[in-house]
Design a protein around this nucleic acid. Structure first.
Lengths: 340, 340
DNA sequence: AAACAAAAGAAAGACGTATGTCAAAATCAT
DNA sequence: ATGATTTTGACATACGTCTTTCTTTTGTTT
């Protein structure tokens, strides 16, 4: 009745435990017919190796590192908390997680950090990807010395890294675009996109996703040319104020990147009907803005789930088992379905 | 460097392993001062018991049962697949999960099944709640004989059951209402709610959530009186066709319960502009309808996640550890953020 | 100081798996 | 049949925890 053990398998196959073990762990030196008998017994009994007992015996423990930007950037601190939240939980399953600080928005600094990691120093590293030759090189080196790399949030070094865990940013942009369409019914409108940098891949993807949907037939929606604010509050304040002043017909705003604190401040000052606003990442600020009816929707990439899935996948990769690409979906938060 | 073991704790506290064990597992017969020394050592070393080794040693295995309605009801089959998907995975961690069939929408039959479970027969059961005196009694009995009960999807026997894992249905209804508001901009409209039974708690909750939001000031939205279709396709077809014919001003439909297959069929026949449609649960049919632009949004309760969290919580409950109420949020799917 | 109870320690075997060593058995080549 | 080789089995030890049994130490009571 209880789960069969490898002893049971051996008995059923009519071989010794040693032989069953040799088959299970591919140690070689086993006659073909014995291999078959063991495999058949495994099939028939529905044997499942007790991974925990195995890890215990192997003294296996996983050492994972996350390289995350420091600073109080809203989203990155959410991400960091998500990782820290996992540390305790995963400890019980022999997964050691450490977080290493890197300067924000600095691919070269990240690359330099990564290049300091020696072979065997850890079992897997997680980074936030970005387009950079130096970073690509660093990732290639790590993979070369047997340390798999997982990219988060934004992909990078696509040929080298083992896995990307994060949302499809085109889909996220499309989703934002769809909400903006909803808000315009069958009427017309002008939508202003705001982003950090146009050469950041995730921002580009989101913008083009939104453009796709807004350009669909039915309704007359015009997507204005994007404001680049480089994650700097002053830039956001100035450029957005200027844009709103020069074009009073703006009926929608899609904030693609960071800097939402400044955006929200400006929205607070608008009297009368305000544009329909969609932005990214649920943080303390964006949440408050939703609740205060200053914005309408937040597209979130569920950092908690993303990190949990990434760690899960890292274990699988470290064990050299086949990885199922974990899926994270862009999630829509309105003021009515906020988490507690 | 590696995780400290209980041996390390004992050594650090200057007591024997036995004493450390007696403290850790509250076996009693330990002097107060020793208890304190051990606790301090645990603190200082950051000791975390290796649960897997503990379970191995205890020969602990968890036996959980889910009682789910049979039939090809879209959502329930999704839910069932979610459970079945977990069976294999959890096996490796010594969790045995079995699914038991019960007739759909029949609280008394479920209650009868539950009353057949004897003490010690399993470690926890999961059911889909519904308001019923018989069911309440059955749940009370189970909890009485030491078998905790977890309710899913819809809550029931609130005083007796150990935990509810599922979405807040008022929030789900509010979310649907918000989307319907979006779609009406600042204009007016008439929204038709359709549900299974008014005396089903989750349906009632969703309806009142939607009503709350639609009644907010700004815009002129009228919520029509709900159609009761009792999960029966013919009822849906007849009543909905009649409603649409008699009121051509309907601009929104909120389908609260099941029976969406028939709803979608009718929508397909509409020529010209159709109402904005929000319904519940992502199934093969609702997904296809989203993709075909027959409906606009689906509110989903993420059955996979719900089941995973429920099982997680069941383990915690079975171990008599403090349970953190797991949160499941109503999720919005548009045609642009569908999972792969 | 003797008698007793409470507290602490020592030791052993178990859980299911991994891994190594060594000897026995089966198979092969000559 | 002999030796060489491959295959198999037996056994031991370990992982970190649980649990039981038995002894020893310490403290209290009279």
């Amino acid at each position: 009745m209880p789960n069969p053990t490898l002893h049971d398998v051996a008995r059923a196959a009519g071989v010794s435990y040693s032989t069953a073990d040799r088959v299970l762990n591919r140690r070689g030196g086993v006659a073909e017919k014995s291999i078959l008998r063991v495999q058949r017994a495994i099939e028939e009994l529905g044997y499942q190796r007790d991974i925990h007992a195995a890890n215990l015996s192997r003294r296996r423990s996983y050492d994972f590192r996350f390289y995350l930007p420091f600073g109080d950037h809203g989203f990155f601190s959410v991400l960091r908390r998500a990782v820290e939240g996992q540390i305790q939980q995963r400890l019980a399953e022999r997964v050691q997680i450490t977080v290493h600080d890197v300067p924000p928005l600095d691919a070269d600094a990240l690359a330099a950090e990564l290049s300091r990691i020696g072979a065997g120093e850890c079992d897997c590293v997680g980074i936030i990807g970005s387009d950079s030759a130096a970073l690509t090189l660093a990732v290639e080196r790590l993979e070369g010395i047997g340390i798999p790399v997982v990219t988060l949030v934004s992909d990078a070094a696509i040929d080298a890294r083992s896995l990307y865990v994060g949302i499809d940013n085109v889909a996220a942009g499309r989703t934002a675009g769809r909400l903006l369409r909803f808000a315009h019914g069958r009427g017309s409108g002008r939508v202003l996109p705001i982003l950090g940098k146009l050469d950041s891949r995730d921002h580009r993807d989101r913008l083009s996703g939104a453009r796709e949907v807004l350009a669909e037939p039915g309704g007359d929606l015009h997507l204005l040319s994007p404001l680049e604010v480089l994650d700097r509050p002053e830039a956001m304040r100035e450029k957005l104020a200027a844009a709103l002043a020069s074009d009073p017909q703006i009926t929608g705003i899609y904030s693609i990147g960071a800097g939402n604190r400044a955006l929200i401040q400006i929205l607070r000052q608008i009297t009368g009907p305000r544009p329909f606003v969609v932005l990214h990442e649920l943080t303390a600020h964006s949440r408050a803005a939703l609740e205060a009816d200053l914005i309408d929707a937040v597209i979130d990439q569920k950092p908690d789930q993303e990190i949990a899935l990434a760690i899960q996948a890292m274990k699988t990769i470290a064990d050299q088992l086949p990885v199922v690409h974990p899926e994270v979906n862009p999630t829509i938060f309105l003021r009515d379905n906020l988490p507690a």
